[in-house]
Design a protein around this nucleic acid. Structure first.
Length: 199
DNA sequence: ACCACGATGCACT
DNA sequence: GTGCATCGTGGTT
């Protein structure tokens, strides 16, 4: 019972670019997560770019640690970490070995949900996104470019106009707040509410 | 628009 | 021991 039009995930070269380019390109793209029961897909509506050594807001800023090791590896791999003791945050690594950088997924909208449970899933905010799709620390380090990967990225179902993508400073940081590296689909309800002072 | 809080675990110095 | 790339709620101006 093979699917005829099984989509292939973005290849590694998609992620081998500056994190801001990838963050922008991921808006409108599809995040796919498989579990034992089903495959779920969600449209990405908000991302943030984190650069490497020159970005004090990035976990890679102070060099590799056991936790952040994936960020220093090849592009396309997932970096998932726990924040405030209760929320998982998922990133995809960008650029490549020697230039640690990543894109944080901050908001999405579930696609093709048939039942009421799915319709109620809230993927607004990085913590809600991972919770709603069942992404945890055990997904950290997996290769999203592997066709069999549990988590992968697929191309947008429709093109997103540049004018539909907003850019602001990033949210929730104490360091590196100046950087304009937050990308979002203008007007989408799954986009985080921005602290106005942050703009 | 702004501030404050509690929940809750752990990586890092 | 300190400080989080959060979330929801509730209070004040």
């Amino acid at each position: 019972m093979d699917r005829v039009n099984e989509p292939t995930p973005y290849e590694r070269s998609f992620f081998e670019r500056a994190p801001d380019d990838v963050a922008r390109a991921l808006i409108g793209s599809v995040l796919q997560v498989r579990d034992a029961h089903r495959v779920r897909r969600a449209r990405i509506v908000e991302t943030e770019a984190y650069a490497g050594f020159d970005d004090p807001g990035s976990h890679a800023y102070r060099g590799p640690t056991p936790r952040t090791a994936v960020m220093f590896g090849p592009a396309g791999f997932l970096y998932v970490y726990l924040i405030y003791g209760m929320h998982w945050c998922v990133n995809v690594v960008t650029e490549g070995v020697g230039t640690p950088s990543a894109v944080l997924l901050r908001g999405a909208v579930l696609l093709g949900h048939d039942d009421a449970d799915d319709a109620a899933v809230n993927l607004r905010g990085p913590g809600n996104l991972t919770k709603g799709l069942g992404i945890t620390g055990s997904d950290s380090g997996l290769d999203s470019c592997d066709p069999h990967s549990r988590v992968s990225f697929l191309s947008a179902m429709s093109t997103v106009a540049d004018s539909a993508i907003g850019v602001t400073r990033r949210i929730g940081l104490s360091k590196g707040r100046e950087r304009e590296s937050r990308y979002f689909l203008v007007g989408d309800s799954a986009v985080s509410k921005v602290p106005p002072a942050d703009r």
